[in-house]
Design a protein around this nucleic acid. Structure first.
Length: 271
DNA sequence: AGTGCGGCCTGTCCGC
DNA sequence: TGCGGACAGGCCGCAC
């Protein structure tokens, strides 16, 4: 389940292998992703070099002079560099074949991911235009979170997972950041104090940055390995630990469903 | 406008 | 052992 750290790790992992490489072919085996993959991609991308790489939220951006390819990994997607003779696995939906014979290979069993092709500025793309700030960028802090949350009645967990508020905070890190900042996931967003907003924003930043660092520790294995970054190994304080002991107070962690998502928190430590 | 939920998918795990 | 069903979850699009 790629969260922002895994997307960032993917970007850093593939970047040196695709940047400034010319695309020789595009092999689209399964266009039925979250949205149909545009056929133009197959015809218009070959012959052009990847001149820029970027990320906006969980969207990966590959720029060429002919247009931009944008990829979202969804729930189960992954991108890796495949050797020229590397056998296909089930669910290898797309190969961007590079001029050194290797491929940027998109794999996605659940097909919640998507591949887009568009011209013009990324900021104008309908899926990107209304996104909130990057959590690790300069526009995201306690003040921002406080201002945006005024009069909002949604649970704070749903609020910070809304990509129009801030991008890249998925279910795992939302739970972790709320625990670390002592905020109850069901508290109405509009009832956050400025102090709590600051703690929460800081914890979101700290935890995401730390997870990216840990993903980075496996970068050297990324190309040859299975593409799984190492951040799963990090100790998660609450996620997946419903019913177990709180690491802070020893009490029992509670598991509920909030906005159709499993949510774990400590009733004693989070108010 | 804000809120809540359905739907898209397959692999994995559980109980019978 | 086989099978059905629940679950996992990002995020758009829709209904209210």
């Amino acid at each position: 389940m790629p969260e922002l750290p895994e997307v960032e790790t993917t970007l850093r992992g593939v970047a040196p292998h695709v940047l400034h490489r010319r695309i020789s072919r595009v092999l689209l085996r399964e266009p039925r992703l979250r949205w149909p993959v545009p056929e133009q991609l197959v015809h218009e991308l070959p012959g052009h070099s990847i001149s820029s790489l970027g990320r906006r939220g969980k969207y990966l951006l590959f720029g060429t002079e002919a247009g931009n390819m944008m990829i979202h990994l969804g729930m189960s997607g992954s991108l890796r560099i495949a050797a020229a003779n590397e056998a296909l696995r089930k669910h290898d939906h797309l190969d961007i074949v590079l001029d050194d014979g290797r491929s940027l290979r998109f794999h996605d069993p659940r097909r919640f991911g998507s591949v887009h092709w568009f011209q013009g500025a990324a900021v104008a793309h309908p899926l990107l235009a209304a996104l909130g700030p990057e959590p690790l960028g300069p526009d995201f802090d306690g003040d921002y979170l406080f201002r945006r949350s005024r009069k909002r009645k949604v649970p704070v967990k749903s609020f910070i997972m809304d990509s129009h508020v801030v991008v890249g905070v998925g279910n795992i890190y939302a739970s972790e950041a709320l625990f670390a900042s002592g905020v109850h996931p069901q508290r109405k967003a509009g009832r956050l104090s400025l102090a709590a907003s600051e703690r929460l924003a800081n914890e979101i930043r700290r935890i995401l940055a730390q997870a990216i660092e840990q993903g980075g520790t496996t970068l050297r294995d990324f190309v040859g390995g299975d593409g799984k970054p190492g951040y799963f190994k990090q100790s998660l304080a609450v996620y997946g630990r419903g019913g177990e002991a709180c690491l802070q107070c020893g009490g029992r962690l509670r598991e509920i469903r909030l906005g159709q998502r499993s949510t774990v928190y400590c009733p004693a430590c989070q108010k």
